[in-house]
Deep mutational scan, measured.
Amino acid sequence: GYRKEQERLGIPYDPIQWSTDQVLHWVVWVMKEFSMTDIDLTTLNISGRELCSLNQEDFFQRVPRGEILWSHLELLRKY
Protein backbone atom coordinates (compact mmCIF):
# COMPACT_ATOMS: atom_id res chain seq x y z
CA GLY A 1 0.00 0.00 0.00
CA TYR A 2 0.89 3.66 0.18
CA ARG A 3 2.56 3.27 3.57
CA LYS A 4 5.46 1.42 1.88
CA GLU A 5 5.73 4.22 -0.64
CA GLN A 6 5.81 6.77 2.19
CA GLU A 7 8.60 4.88 3.94
CA ARG A 8 10.59 4.52 0.72
CA LEU A 9 10.37 8.22 -0.14
CA GLY A 10 10.32 9.73 3.35
CA ILE A 11 6.80 11.14 2.92
CA PRO A 12 5.24 12.01 6.31
CA TYR A 13 2.48 9.65 7.43
CA ASP A 14 0.25 12.59 8.33
CA PRO A 15 -1.11 14.15 5.10
CA ILE A 16 -1.36 17.55 6.82
CA GLN A 17 2.46 17.69 6.69
CA TRP A 18 2.74 17.00 2.97
CA SER A 19 4.31 19.46 0.57
CA THR A 20 2.55 20.27 -2.70
CA ASP A 21 4.83 17.77 -4.48
CA GLN A 22 3.93 15.06 -1.98
CA VAL A 23 0.21 15.73 -2.48
CA LEU A 24 0.65 15.35 -6.24
CA HIS A 25 2.75 12.20 -5.76
CA TRP A 26 -0.07 10.68 -3.69
CA VAL A 27 -2.70 11.62 -6.31
CA VAL A 28 -0.64 10.01 -9.10
CA TRP A 29 -0.04 6.90 -6.97
CA VAL A 30 -3.76 6.47 -6.25
CA MET A 31 -4.60 7.05 -9.93
CA LYS A 32 -2.18 4.28 -10.98
CA GLU A 33 -3.24 1.95 -8.19
CA PHE A 34 -6.94 2.24 -9.06
CA SER A 35 -6.53 2.77 -12.84
CA MET A 36 -8.09 6.23 -12.72
CA THR A 37 -7.57 8.53 -15.70
CA ASP A 38 -10.09 11.33 -15.23
CA ILE A 39 -8.42 13.36 -12.47
CA ASP A 40 -7.13 16.84 -13.28
CA LEU A 41 -3.91 17.17 -11.28
CA THR A 42 -3.92 20.96 -11.48
CA THR A 43 -6.94 21.10 -9.16
CA LEU A 44 -4.88 19.45 -6.39
CA ASN A 45 -1.72 21.52 -6.73
CA ILE A 46 -2.02 22.42 -3.02
CA SER A 47 -0.23 21.66 0.23
CA GLY A 48 -1.21 18.89 2.59
CA ARG A 49 -2.52 21.46 5.04
CA GLU A 50 -4.85 22.89 2.37
CA LEU A 51 -5.83 19.38 1.26
CA CYS A 52 -6.77 18.38 4.80
CA SER A 53 -8.74 21.59 5.35
CA LEU A 54 -11.13 20.76 2.49
CA ASN A 55 -14.45 19.28 3.49
CA GLN A 56 -15.99 16.59 1.32
CA GLU A 57 -18.08 19.03 -0.70
CA ASP A 58 -15.09 21.30 -1.43
CA PHE A 59 -12.98 18.28 -2.34
CA PHE A 60 -15.54 17.01 -4.86
CA GLN A 61 -15.87 20.48 -6.37
CA ARG A 62 -12.14 20.36 -7.07
CA VAL A 63 -12.13 16.68 -8.01
CA PRO A 64 -15.35 15.48 -9.60
CA ARG A 65 -15.48 11.67 -9.35
CA GLY A 66 -12.84 11.83 -6.64
CA GLU A 67 -14.55 9.35 -4.30
CA ILE A 68 -11.62 6.90 -4.27
CA LEU A 69 -9.14 9.69 -3.56
CA TRP A 70 -11.33 11.05 -0.75
CA SER A 71 -11.74 7.59 0.83
CA HIS A 72 -8.00 6.94 0.61
CA LEU A 73 -7.22 10.31 2.19
CA GLU A 74 -9.66 9.58 5.02
CA LEU A 75 -7.86 6.27 5.66
CA LEU A 76 -4.45 7.95 5.71
CA ARG A 77 -5.67 10.60 8.15
CA LYS A 78 -6.78 7.95 10.65
CA TYR A 79 -3.38 6.29 11.01
Rank of each mutant, 00 (worst) to 15 (best):
L69A: 05
T43G: 14
L54A: 00
F34G: 09
R65L: 08
G1D: 10
W18D: 00
Q17R: 14
L76W: 03
I39P: 07
L9E: 09
E67C: 07
E5G: 03
R77F: 01
L41F: 10
R62P: 00
R49I: 07
V28F: 09
E67W: 08
L51W: 00
Y13R: 10
D40G: 06
L41H: 11
W26A: 01
R65W: 08
S19P: 02
D58L: 10
S47K: 08
G48A: 02
L41N: 06
L51S: 01
Q56M: 09
P12M: 01
L24S: 09
H25Q: 05
L54E: 04
V23I: 02
R62K: 13
E5I: 14
Q56V: 07
R8A: 11
L75V: 07
S19W: 01
Q6S: 06
E67S: 11
L9K: 11
T20W: 04
G66T: 02
Q61N: 10
D21F: 04
C52S: 05
E5S: 02
E7P: 01
Y79I: 10
V30G: 12
V28P: 01
S19N: 11
L76P: 03
N55Y: 06
L44A: 03
F60C: 10
P15I: 05
F60R: 14
I46L: 12
F34D: 07
V27N: 02
R65M: 09
C52K: 01
E57H: 13
Q61K: 13
I39V: 15
F59H: 01
K78M: 11
W18K: 01
D58G: 11
E50K: 12
H72M: 05
T43I: 07
R62C: 08
G48S: 02
K32V: 05
N45Y: 07
R49P: 14
D38S: 11
Y79E: 14
Q6W: 04
P64A: 05
K78F: 10
R8V: 08
I68G: 10
I11K: 00
V27W: 02
L41G: 08
F60T: 12
M36W: 09
R49C: 09
E5N: 01
M31G: 10
F34P: 03
Q6A: 10
H25L: 08
T43K: 15
S47A: 08
S53I: 04
I68M: 10
S35I: 02
L44M: 13
Q6P: 02
L73M: 05
L24T: 11
S35M: 08
L75A: 13
S47L: 02
Y2C: 06
R62W: 05
R77P: 02
L75D: 13
P15C: 02
L54V: 05
K78D: 15
I16F: 13
V23Y: 02
T20Y: 04
S47E: 11
P64Q: 06
T43M: 12
I68Q: 10
L41P: 13
W29C: 03
L75P: 07
D21I: 05
H72K: 05
I11N: 02
W70N: 02
I39D: 05
S71G: 14
Y13L: 13
S71M: 08
K4D: 09
E50Y: 09
K4H: 14
R65T: 10
W18A: 01
T43R: 13
E67G: 13
E7S: 08
R62A: 09
I11E: 01
T42Q: 12
Y13S: 13
R8M: 08
S53G: 11
K4G: 11
F60Y: 11
D14H: 08
L73A: 02
E74G: 11
E5W: 04
Y13H: 09
L9A: 10
Q22E: 14
T37F: 13
V28Y: 12
E7A: 11
R62G: 04
L69H: 06
E57P: 10
F34M: 07
Q56P: 07
F34Y: 14
W29H: 04
L75Q: 10
E7K: 04
L54W: 13
E33Y: 06
K78H: 13
V27H: 02
E5A: 03
Q56W: 05
D21G: 14
D14P: 03
W29K: 02
T42H: 11
G66D: 01
V23D: 01
Y79C: 11
R77I: 06
T20D: 09
T42L: 08
K78N: 15
Q22L: 01
P64G: 08
E33K: 14
F60L: 15
R65F: 07
H72C: 05
E67R: 09
M31E: 05
V63T: 07
F59K: 02
E67Y: 07
W26C: 01
T42Y: 09
K78P: 07
L54C: 04
L75N: 15
R49V: 10
D58W: 07
V23E: 00
I11R: 02
I11A: 03
Q56Y: 15
V23T: 11
I39T: 12
R65E: 15
E74T: 08
F34H: 15
D40Q: 06
L73C: 00
E74C: 08
P12C: 04
M36H: 07
L24G: 09
E74M: 13
W18R: 01
L51V: 03
W70R: 04
R8N: 07
E33R: 12
M31W: 05
R77N: 09
M31T: 15
S71D: 15
Q17S: 13
L73R: 02
I46P: 00
R62E: 07
R49L: 11
Y13W: 12
D38K: 10
T20R: 13
Q17N: 11
L51Q: 00
L41A: 12
N55L: 06
S35G: 15
L54Q: 04
T37M: 13
T20M: 08
E33A: 08
Q22D: 11
W18T: 00
Q17K: 08
G10I: 03
T20H: 12
S47C: 12
N55D: 14
N55E: 12
Q56F: 10
D58T: 11
D38H: 11
I39E: 09
M31A: 12
G1L: 03
E50R: 06
L24E: 10
T42A: 14
E7W: 05
I68Y: 12
W18G: 02
R3C: 07
E5L: 04
K78W: 06
N45E: 12
C52E: 04
P12K: 02
Q22I: 01
K78Q: 11
G10P: 00
D38L: 04
V28L: 15
L41R: 07
L44E: 01
T37I: 06
R62F: 07
Q61F: 10
V27I: 11
Q56G: 06
S47W: 02
E7H: 05
Q61G: 13
N55Q: 09
D14V: 01
S53Q: 10
M36L: 15
V63N: 04
S19A: 03
Q22W: 00
E5H: 05
G66L: 02
V27P: 03
T43Y: 14
T37N: 13
N45C: 11
K32Q: 11
H25M: 05
N45M: 11
P12D: 05
V28S: 12
V63D: 03
V63G: 06
L44W: 09
Y79H: 14
Q61W: 05
T43F: 05
F59W: 06
Y79T: 08
L69Q: 01
E67I: 07
I39Q: 06
W29A: 03
L75T: 15
M31P: 00
G48M: 00
E67H: 14
I46K: 02
Y2H: 15
L51I: 04
V27E: 01
T43A: 14
L54H: 04
G10W: 04
L44Q: 00
F59P: 00
E67F: 06
L76I: 06
F59G: 01
R3V: 06
D38V: 05
R77W: 01
R49A: 14
E50A: 11
I46G: 02
P64K: 08
Q61I: 07
E7N: 07
L41V: 13
Q17V: 09
K4L: 11
R8S: 08
F34K: 14
S53F: 06
K32Y: 07
P64Y: 02
M36D: 13
Y13C: 08
W18F: 01
W70M: 03
G1T: 08
H72I: 05
Q22S: 03
G1W: 04
G66W: 03
N55C: 09
F34N: 15
